[in-house]
Structures are given as C-alpha cells and as structure tokens.
Design a protein around this nucleic acid. Structure first.
Lengths: 200, 200, 200, 200
DNA sequence: GATGAATGAGGATTCATTCAT
DNA sequence: GATGAATGAATCCTCATTCAT
C-alpha cells in the first residue's frame, strides 16, 4: 500500500531542505552560472532528476535560497525590535548576529548568495529585488537604532543614513574578507572595535 | 610596405587594451562563468575570433584583467610610499584613491573582478593568488601607515592589523554597496567619516 | 477474504480499460512520442506507477490501443459480411459506421492513433503491422462489396481496387478534416454524396 | 582576410536551405516530438550546433518548414488563378499539382508536416494557424473553381462547400495512403477518377 | 590582421521506468 | 492493488574554441 500522505509530505520537506542547504553551499562557492544542478543534487545526496520534483529550474532553486535569506532577515529584524533594553543594547544585539565568525547557521553562505544576487546581471529582476529588500530590512532596523541612540546620547552625532551605511559596510566588508581568508579569524577586529564606529 | 611592422605592433596593443577594457566591464557585470567571449568581443567592437589572437582562452582574458589590477595596485602602493608628508597625510592620500565615488578610471570594474577572483571556486589557483596578492599589497601599505601613525600620535591605538582590516573592510563594503546601488552616492559617508575609524 | 480473487480480477479489467480509454485520447491528441505516461495515468485517474502493473511500457500501451482498434475492425468486417441485403445495402451499412460524425464511441481517437502508427517511423514494426492489417481488413471487405456491386449493377464499372481506394481515401480524408476542424460538421458532405463515388 | 559579405550571405542561405530540406524529411517521418535536432543536422550534413545559428530552436525549424509550405501554397493558388482556360481547365491544372505521385519537389514531406501541425496538440498556436491557413488557401481556390464550374455546367450541382471538401478530402486521403504504402502507386486511382467526383 | 562559419563538449531539463512502502 | 519518490538516459541548447578565407 502507498505511503501515508503525511509520510510523503515529510519526505518532501526534508528533501527540499536538504536541497536548499546544498544549494546555498554550492551557490556561495560558485555563483549561479558556475554551479551545476548535478553538483547541488550530489551535495544534497540525491539525483539531479529529483531536484526538479522540488524546483522548476536552477534559477528557482537560487531564488528559493535568496527567499530563505530574506525571511531570516525579516525574523532577525523583528526579533531585534522586540529586544528589551536601550537602543544601544539592541544595536549590539543585532550586530552580534550579523558579525562574522558568529557562524549562526549558514549565514556566510547566505551572504555570498545574496551578494551574487545583488551584483550579477544574470540574476532575474525578481530575485534581485528580494536581495535588495533583504538588505533594506536590516538597514532600516539599524538606522532606527542609530537615530534612537543619538537621541539617548549613546550614538555619535551625524547623518544617520551615512553612519548606518558606514557601519554596515564595515561589517559586510569583514564578512567578505572572512569568506576568502583561509583565516580562522585570528586578526578579525572585535565587535567592540566595530561598534566604536557608532559610539558617541 | 615598410612601417607595417610597427603599425601592426601598434594595432595589436590597441586591440589588446580595447579587449581588456571590455572584458573588465563584462566580467564585472557577469563574472567569469556567465560572461561570454562573444559579448566581450562585441563590447570591444571586434569579432570573437580576433580575441583568440590576443588571448589563448577566456580564462586568460580574465587573468589579464586581474593582472592589470594587480599592477595598478603595485603602482598605487609605490606612489603612496613615495608621497611626502606625515603618515596621516599619506594615509589620506591613498584612501582618496581607493574610496568609492572617486571614479578613478575603471576601479569599480576591477574591484568586482578581483572580488570574483577571490570568492569564486571556479577561478584558477594562479588567478586567485594574484587577487590575494593585490589585496595584500594595499593592506601592507596601509598597515605601515597605521603603525607610523600610531607612533606619531595621529592614529588611535590598538592592534594595527585589526585596525587596518576594519578600515579597509569598511571601504570595500562601501565600494560594494555603491556597485549595486542605483545610487549617485547621495548618502555615501564622507571620506572623513571613514578616516575617523583610524583617527586618534 | 474470499471473493478477493474475483474482485481483484474485476478491478484489473476495469483499470485496464480505463487506461486504454485514456491512452487512446492522449495518443490521439499528442502521438506516441509527445504523450507522457503521467498524462495518460492522470487522464485515467490513477497514478503513473499503476500503469506499469497493467502494461510493461508506454510502447505496449500504444500497442494495446492499436490492437483494440484492430479487433474492432475485425468485428466490424465480420458484422458487415453477416449483414443481409444486396452488396449495395451492405456497402451502405459499413460506410455508415466508418463515416465521420457518426461518433461511434471512440472511433476518431482510434483513427488518429492508427494513422500515427502507420506514418511514424518511431513506431515498432509489430505495431505498424497491426495498423496496416487493420486498414487491410476494412479495405478487403469494401472491395468485395464493390466487386459484387459491379456484378449486380449497383456500383459503377472500373478497377475495383482503384475504386475502393478512392472511396476509402475520401472517407479517411473527411475523418481527418473533422479532427482538426473546430467544426460541428456543418458543411460535411453527406453520406450519399460520398456513396455517389461508387454509384453506378 | 575575412570572407566577403556576399560569400557569407551565400553560405548562410545554402545552409538554411539544406537544413530546411533535411528538417522537412525528418519531421515528415517522425513528427516534431520524435525528431531530434541531431538527426536533422546530420541529415543536412552539419553539426547540431550550427543549426542554432540559423534557428532559435527545434520548434522554430518546424515553424519554418510549415511557413515554407504556406508560401508554396500561396504561389500555387496564385498561379492557378492566373491560369487560362475554363474553370474546369483550371481545376484540372491545380489538381494535377496536388495529386499524389506527381512528386513535385518535396510535396509529400510538406503534406505530412502540415498534417502534424494540424493534428498535434504539442504544436504552438502560431504554427497551427499557419497550417490551417495553408489548407484554407487551397480550399478557397478550388471552391471558386467549383462555383464557376457549376455556372458553366462543367461541375455537378450541389453545395459547393461540401463538394469541395469531399474532393479535397479524397485527394488528401490518397496522398496519405501513398505515404505509408511501400507502394509505387500501382493501384492509385487516376486523376480522372478523382475529377469524376466533381464532373457534371 | 580580421571575420564568422563550424564543431562538439558540457550542462539544464524531461520523462520512462523502478521500487519502497 | 496503489502511490509517488527516486533514478538516469536522452535530448535540447549554449558557447568556448578552431579554422578557412
């Protein structure tokens, strides 16, 4: 007799998650154009044919990875806003979670995939927009904290947009440099050094 | 009939430079895997067949772009070291030349190509190493200025490696964000805001 | 627990017939190469896996459809021969049953499938031969009626083979044109107009 | 030095024609779905890669074949209308050119390809419409001759649409049967037997 | 030097078929 | 009996590279 409905549903979810994990890894290392479907499927431990029972195309797998990243950014933003304490406390809280070396799950993979989606012309408008949106979500939250921090005297004065952008750019620059460094993070600046950029 | 020798030589150089310019543009927008030889040749205004008279393969074109970037980094580093003034003056001098929005020639293209060479697994070891080398050249010069600046009291105290890395990471993060921003640089932080990271 | 044997047997037959019906529809619309097993199974309301419990391969399903058509042709031929009346009466009787618009069950589907089997190189020798045989069965009966009709003065004179072939070709051409006509048969020639071809 | 512009143009035209010829053959024998691009290219004596320098896809090759058939039908129709003589003369003239066994060029291939385009659901709307149009062009001309022939007393009385349809259906049925007959046309009805259908 | 026709290896995608449940 | 997850062979299509002119 056939598998139960739930059993199949479960298998599908597990497979999809495996594929997304594998795809994030591969896309992060090779980008969309260079990654092959066979490689992603192999990394997920399934045949390439099965991938197409879960995603319509390589492009859609890529889109799903970016979408997942977008969702995680949304969750992070909401969690940050729900955090107790001063604006500075919340700024530190969210910074801890986007700072390199914190290795929260597959953050680095996501970062590279989103970066690819932002910079590469071969990416569809839709996916590009999701990537843009993802960046904006984090930026908006941080900027809000910067403004509040300036009011409470924790954050140095200056254009909040510029300050936010500089702050996030430095973190992104560090994430990036961590990515292609054989490095164990030995001489990575500390979280506090980076926060210093905003410190009043 | 005479002169043909020199004329040909000249044409060759011009063509090669055209191709490299075009290649930098295309590789910056699409990366190595997604860029096509036909597209590069078209951007250079020549047939794709001709490209193979100047480069043995697409990979070699890419390598030549990275190499050119490496050479420019070397020139920039030597020029910075030859600059008069205090360590801080020289730090500012070189910063002005790597800061986004300064639009020094094709810097942004080079940046993206080198970034691709650093992060993408599909790039050959040799080319990857050139890209790593390029980063190191700039980093070493800046770090030297940081050390000197700390001694002369212009640069804040702290681990020079970490400070240098944070400083360069923020610039790279800004260059990157400029790349995928429709942005006219409106809310780009100022050079002085960035230098503040190092300011004593 | 008892009865299961019979019940199962019954289910098998019903399923097989469902599948053949569905297959005839789909093969008629798409041909052998373009039709998918999944589509046939879906049209029959079962899973594609089940199809393989009844047929060894897609090709065999196709073969079974052609075979069914062959059997029906045989039945039709025998019935025509058993028909009372003059040669002309029997000619008219069988013509009524192969004439388009009479919508005798799934005749049009069968027609298209047999046509595909006759004309497409991708069809196996065996299946092709069944299709040829099917045509011959009808042709032979009609030709016999033509010969008899000539003797009795109902059918015009001339080479019986040629007359038969012309007569059947016109019917087949009409069936075909009905197939791809949004047509409700409005301007379809009448049965008598077609019989006129043979009328003395 | 490069080939002259005309030389290239010439090569392209020759190749395109080769490919269309080959495609008509292969599509006629296998249909759209079953024919492979490799097979078509091989039949044309070129690599499959080259086919894509002339056509964007297999579907477009198919479309081009149907279009060519459409154009030939248009030419035939115009020529028939320009023909001197009575309606009956012109009817006979065009019939001679669509009657099987006349082997005017690649008529049989075209016939099968158009038939496929008419009956197979896998064919795009656009291509299907061209095929419909092709049939209509011939039908309209013949019907005009039928009407004129009735007025001049050459053609039997009756609904011109029905008569035309019956007449063309019989020719099409004969073309079809010639296609899958190993036959040399031995017992093919004569042209006059077919014209008898319309004869007053 | 320059062009673009030609080739074929590589990779995305489909789908017949198998098989565990 | 019935299902649908899983596989991989087959085929379309792209594009780096070669080469005749």
């Amino acid at each position: 007799m056939p598998r139960t409905e739930e059993a199949n549903q479960h298998i599908r979810e597990v497979r999809r998650e495996q594929l997304l994990q594998a795809a994030a890894q591969v896309f992060a290392r090779k980008g969309l154009a260079d990654a092959t479907v066979a490689e992603i499927a192999a990394a997920a431990g399934v045949s390439h044919g099965l991938l197409y029972r879960h995603f319509a195309s390589k492009e859609e797998v890529f889109a799903a990875v970016v979408e997942q990243s977008l969702e995680q950014a949304g969750q992070l933003a909401r969690a940050a806003l729900a955090q107790p304490g001063t604006a500075w406390d919340r700024l530190r809280w969210i910074t801890e979670r986007i700072f390199p070396g914190q290795a929260l799950g597959n953050r680095p993979q996501f970062f590279m995939v989103v970066l690819y989606a932002l910079t590469n012309e071969g990416v569809s408008e839709h996916v590009h927009n999701m990537a843009v949106q993802q960046g904006k979500i984090i930026r908006d939250v941080v900027q809000q904290f910067v403004v509040e921090g300036q009011q409470s005297g924790h954050v140095r004065l200056g254009d909040p947009q510029q300050l936010t952008r500089l702050f996030l750019a430095s973190i992104q620059g560090l994430v990036l440099s961590e990515t292609f460094r054989q490095s164990n993070g030995a001489d990575l600046p500390t979280l506090d050094m980076v926060l210093q950029i905003l410190r009043a």
